[in-house]
Simulated scan of single mutants.
Amino acid sequence: MTTKISDQQATSSLQRSDADRLILPNYYRHYSTDSLPQTAMDLVRKLIDLYASGPHFYANLDGAILSTWLEEDFPEIVAGLKQEGQFASFQQSLEFYCERLSVAGALADTFLNETLNYEQDDFWDFDVERFFPGLHRRIQLGEVRKLEELPPIIATLVDRFTRVQGIPLRANNRIHLHSYLSDEAWDWFDLPQVKAGGNKTAYLLRKEHFSIYLSAHTNERYALVLNAPQGRSSSALICRTSHHEVGPAITEARKVIAEIRFSEYVPAIPFFDNLPTLKLFRQHIPVVYLFDDAPALLVEYPFSWMADSPWFTREALRIEETYSPQDITWDADALINKIRSMPLGPGPVKRKSVFNGPFNDSWPEFPYL
């Protein structure tokens, strides 16, 4: 890992002045005394903890993305910050926190013998000395070997990264998170129109239109709905393979494009044509598959724009610049042609009550003892 070396004394004073002037999140909220910016920063910290997906996520922390998440989940907080003229200063504090947390993640990763490849051209030139003077060199020299010798924020991330690495191999590690959804509570959607659209069109569904069953099974705010590929069983759709990557595909016009495919058996999404949609997802892309003779199947495919967008973008550019149609042997039959907004129906249908009384709500009478 490379660092921007600066005078240690000046760095320490800069760090102290930054910490005094800007807001950092609390792990315990004081509801009666916390300011609105403090509450906003605490909520951002919770969003980071909820959607974090490993060292790459922390290395690529983006304050603009986190501000978008905060506004989507807590619009009243952002509206209050803007109304009180504190949103700009909050964003400044958030950028400072993102820089500090990225450095902490990089040092935690270094402590664990660098699972990230810091020699690649997408290396993040972290300003390590600004936040933790001299610590990186001490870790490299083996002078810091115990978790207790690390600053708390770095020790926390070391523990978090090792917990993920320590998950034992089981049969369910080979499948994606999935759930079968009840056929009820789909009144908001025009399912006949979706089923008539074939399996090359996906429909984007917003959280406010999720059924109660879908809301219970995902933390994402958007989902894709599409018809299950012909001839593919549920077991094939949930199978975890090594194909979660950006790869080449050929359109009907014989043009080479980059696609994202999450499994060998599921539809692929053209990358550059769907960037606005891909940026909506935080940790997974929930896909609801519709079957003619079975309940809908929800599958959550791992996908973090925060963590993986630099690598995905670089790889997609390389594919479209270097590949020719003769180089591609990948089956492109499942390539999604377009993503549309989910067509909505008339809304829930009022169902006739099964039992209308009479009701006996009185307490039973007991004899005096």
Results as ranks from 00 to 15, higher is better:
Y180W: 12
N199F: 04
L226H: 13
L214H: 11
W188C: 11
A196S: 02
H178I: 02
D190E: 02
N199Q: 09
Y180H: 06
G231C: 03
I212E: 14
Y203V: 02
L181F: 06
L177T: 06
Q230W: 11
K207Y: 15
L237G: 02
R232P: 00
A202I: 04
A216C: 07
F189Y: 08
S235A: 07
L205G: 15
S182F: 01
A228K: 06
V225I: 10
D183G: 00
H178M: 07
Y222W: 12
G197Y: 11
L205A: 13
E184H: 13
L237R: 11
K207L: 14
S233D: 10
H209A: 15
H209P: 08
S179K: 05
L205W: 13
I212T: 13
V194K: 12
K195Q: 08
D190T: 03
A196I: 00
Q230L: 05
L205Y: 15
F210Q: 10
P229W: 09
R221Q: 05
P229G: 00
S233R: 15
K200L: 05
G197H: 10
R232W: 06
L204S: 09
L224P: 02
N227I: 07
F210L: 07
A223T: 09
C239N: 06
L177D: 00
N227T: 11
S233M: 13
T201M: 07
S179D: 05
E208T: 14
D187L: 05
K200G: 11
V225P: 00
N227C: 08
L177M: 05
L214Q: 14
L214W: 13
G197M: 07
L191I: 03
L204W: 15
C239H: 12
A228D: 01
Y222P: 05
L237N: 09
L204H: 13
Y203A: 04
I212L: 15
A223W: 13
S235P: 00
A223N: 04
A185I: 14
R221K: 08
G231H: 08
L214Y: 13
A228Y: 01
S211Y: 02
E220M: 08
L191K: 02
P229Q: 01
L224Q: 03
